[in-house]
């Protein structure tokens, strides 16, 4: 098998096979239960996705959730980056932050969601939850990549008196990005999942989570599954989008 065929197999054929298997299993279980209210068939679900796509309410919810996710992720990324930089520069800050990060990491997500719903409102709580839960992941990834910066390369920069601006943008940031982008892409997908979970519990209006909560209350199983499929596809698309951006970003850096 030549390299090209192997690549096509790995990147296209295998994922397609996995999707087909999932649908087959889904179809078998749907046939066994034989009840639209317990498990609709993939066809019923896709029909419902079609219905959702033609509805304005869905698109407003979709955009709201997506925007909130991006906002939460961006906040998380910026805060994590700044904290990691401070912790890298000042040992005392690293020591002070360490227990906070551990506490945030150990706190059950559901507790964070409920607390923020009580403390704030249904629109703000999901953003705060997503920001806070993803923060330790991004902080740890950025901090460890800063700690693992190539010391030899930095020594070379010092000897050749390379400008600080060039050291930051041409040496440090590309190295940090190279070792954190996988965490970034998976964090973005995780952010979306958290966002939807928080929206469901907070019953946020005009959101994917809000629509899911509505579908659950009215026992609209095909709509609930359709919204789940949309969320899964959106999470995968976000992850794929960051991976797609990786190459141009690395070139640009």
């Amino acid at each position: 098998m030549n390299k090209k065929t192997k690549k096509i197999l790995e990147n296209v054929l295998y994922p397609i096979c996995v999707i087909v298997i999932i649908f087959l299993i889904w179809l078998i279980f749907a046939e066994i239960t034989n009840s639209e209210f317990i498990l609709p068939t993939p066809f019923q679900t896709f029909q419902e996705i079609g219905n959702l796509f033609s509805s304005g309410t869905f698109w407003i919810a979709f955009c709201n959730t997506l925007l909130r996710t991006l906002l939460a992720f961006l906040s998380s990324f910026v805060i994590a980056g700044l904290l990691a930089l401070l912790a890298f520069k000042f040992k005392a800050i690293e020591k002070i932050l360490s227990p906070f990060i551990s506490i945030i990491r150990a706190t059950p997500t559901i507790a964070v969601i409920l607390l923020f719903i009580i403390w704030t409102n249904a629109n703000i709580a999901p953003i705060l939850v997503s920001t806070l839960v993803v923060l330790p992941l991004l902080y740890t990834a950025i901090f460890s990549s800063l700690k693992n910066l190539d010391k030899d390369l930095l020594q070379m920069c010092k000897i050749y008196k390379i400008k600080n601006k060039d050291i930051i943008f041409k040496v440090c940031i590309p190295q940090v990005w190279a070792s954190t982008y996988l965490t970034v892409s998976s964090s973005l997908a995780l952010n979306l999942k958290l966002m939807v979970a928080a929206e469901v519990l907070a019953n946020t209006t005009k959101s994917l989570g809000g629509l899911m909560q509505g579908a659950k209350i009215y026992f609209e199983m095909s709509e609930l599954l359709a919204l789940t499929v949309v969320t899964v596809v959106l999470a995968l698309a976000l992850e794929y989008f960051v991976n797609l951006l990786n190459r141009p970003i690395r070139r640009w850096l």
């Binding site: 030899d152 390369l153 070379m156 000897i159 050749y160 041409k170 590309p174 190279a178």
Partner: peptide, 11 residues
Amino acid sequence: FVFNDNRLIPN
């Protein structure tokens, strides 16, 4: 400085 391991910036 010429290093044994070159130390070229990879990107």
